[in-house]
Design a protein around this nucleic acid. Structure first.
Lengths: 129, 129
DNA sequence: TTCAAGTATTCGATTATTCGAATGTATAAA
DNA sequence: TTTATACATTCGAATAATCGAATACTTGAA
């Protein structure tokens, strides 16, 4: 990941990291809903739901289509939302590693790096850009 | 997703949603590192990195193995971290939907729900628990 | 023992997030 | 045109997150 991107990625993830917003996204996964529908389901007041929807809109995670006086919200990037939720729901086992394993890993890494450096400088000599 | 779980999921995501913590996780994706290593790479002070590592530890995203005076951190749930980062890095195109599409979707959803209700009550009549 | 290196924790100060209450706005029906 | 419905926005107070500075802890070496 390019370094300045962790800024953007973090902002995107921040939009996900509130229980109410997560619940809204979960609702939208199985179809569009208007705010009234959400009010019936979520334990939050109307204004608060609107506030969270605003956050999700700014993150480009949702958008809406107006239908008379109703606003039907839907996922703007359904793939992203579904896949991310799937990853989070899954429970990945926690691994425990010994100092020896760590050491071995670091050595592997050091060697790999040396190779990368070598091939890079080789390419640069050969003709960069 | 069970309803009370959006609480936990949100907490997990909150651990991810800071640029420095994301950068730490990215570093750890390609191998264990001790705090000194991270200090050289990240634009943050030692104390701050330790603070963020504490957050990541509490979220069970990282752990460490002590090696003399060094603490080598590694990913406790590498699958989770890698997959989540992969999803976030990908750029999913933003879709725009018309009121008509939304309407069609809502109707599909309503029909599906009716079926679910019917089969559920059928199962209940047949012999619950 | 001391000492230094590597890391963690605590403490305030600052900034950001969150929520409810109140108010604003748009649309459709009367 | 009024009115009701469905949302959105603004404001202020409460809470939480963040950071640097200072300090504490732990380990290995002298």
């Amino acid at each position: 990941m390019p370094p300045e991107d962790s800024q953007n990625a973090a902002e995107l993830l921040k939009a996900f990291s509130h229980p109410t917003r997560l619940a809204i996204l979960l609702e939208l996964v199985d179809g569009p809903k208007c705010v009234t529908d959400m009010e019936e389901i979520l334990p939050a007041r109307q204004a608060n739901i609107s506030q969270h929807l605003a956050v999700l809109r700014h993150a480009k995670l949702v958008d809406y289509a107006q239908d008379g006086t109703l606003r039907c919200y839907y996922l703007s990037r359904p793939r992203l939302v579904k896949d991310l939720l799937a990853v989070v729901e899954r429970d990945d086992p926690v691994v425990k590693r010994t100092p020896a394993e760590i050491q071995a890993d670091k050595e592997r890494l050091a060697k790999a790096k040396a190779v990368t450096r070598a091939s890079k400088s080789g390419r640069e000599k050969a003709g960069k850009r």
